[in-house]
Design a protein around this nucleic acid. Structure first.
Lengths: 187, 187
DNA sequence: AATCTATGAATGAATG
DNA sequence: CATTCATTCATAGATT
């Protein structure tokens, strides 16, 4: 049986922003979406908060259909896999660093200790959207993206644990949603 | 520090109700177990008490290996994930897509179920998985704790897990579902 | 087509 | 209860 009846439909319209024609059984990120996600990841974002997920999701929706959970899973998986691939390579001498694919990783991030939430300020993505024409998308897109977690900022708590790292201080920057790329430039 | 410890036991007897070849590092509920849990959940049970967990656990053990903590976690996770899915629509009191839009959780093991179906000839206790009406245990709840699975020890574990919580759950099962009255009986 | 691989999705198991 | 980590399942694509 398929998944939920509803979910079963799963992106029914298919259509994949320039990507190959897929029947969308599951989210298939477009290259642009992947790029953005990758950039964010490389910038140090590893465990986006609910709001961040929302914003990212909204932003990504510009390039194609996407839901919050997709973003959530993406980071979840990417982080996990990066770590998993990391452990292995007995760099005896020349330690090739074999940058398989992601050659970023700003933080060592070992185990749970690395919970230092990168309070990266990927601030307001949301507002800059315009009415792109999305086949399935019905006008308002921001409402479409469901929230993964109740948008309740637990950030206050996180704030306390704020990273002890010295990674660029970028807290309150960009309240006026400068282009993502721009922001990433100085991350 | 990989997880290899307890896994050593491995289900030689393999009573894991046919879940795909997994080394059983963690509990893998059988379809029947899931069904029961789901019914209970749908019946309104969200935060079972320790005793309830025990009973549920005992009951579930009839369908396969399970520990109290599994039940505990199951409810914990299910509740949490259900909430996340709960994306309440603004205003509106009666809109169509309130319940049908499952996208995140409560997904009945889609494909998996099919595979699960064929439980092999394992199980030292899952005898005829036919339409077994629970043995005569209904009368008294606490009687007979399956010997196949000494359910003893894990009370301590549970104790620990529960230790932190201070909520006095007076969760009553709201009876509003017809079919599962039977299942609720053992609570 | 069969197989392998990358990765989306799901969920059990913690921890705070 | 909120969040996160770990592991596994399922499958779209690439590869042979």
């Amino acid at each position: 049986m398929e998944m939920e009846g509803e979910a079963g439909v799963v992106m029914s319209g298919g259509f994949n922003a320039g990507r190959v024609g897929v029947k969308c059984g599951r989210w298939n990120p477009t290259t642009e979406q992947v790029k953005v996600l990758m950039d964010l990841f490389r910038a140090g974002l590893r465990t986006p908060s609910t709001e961040q997920i929302q914003r990212i999701s909204n932003h990504l929706s510009y390039f194609g259909k996407v839901e919050s959970k997709n973003v959530f899973y993406w980071f979840q998986n990417h982080k996990a896999r990066e770590r998993h691939h990391k452990k292995r390579r007995r760099g005896s001498s020349s330690d090739e660093e074999a940058e398989t694919e992601h050659k970023f990783v700003i933080s060592p991030d070992c185990k749970r200790e690395a919970k230092l939430s990168h309070r990266s300020a990927l601030s307001s993505f949301a507002k800059e959207e315009e009415q792109i024409t999305w086949p399935e998308r019905t006008g308002s897109r921001d409402i479409e993206t469901l929230e993964l977690f109740p948008l309740k900022a637990y950030d206050l708590e996180m704030e306390k644990i704020r990273c002890a790292r010295t990674t660029t201080e970028i807290k309150e920057i960009s309240f006026f949603d400068p282009p993502l790329e721009l922001r990433l430039s100085f991350l």
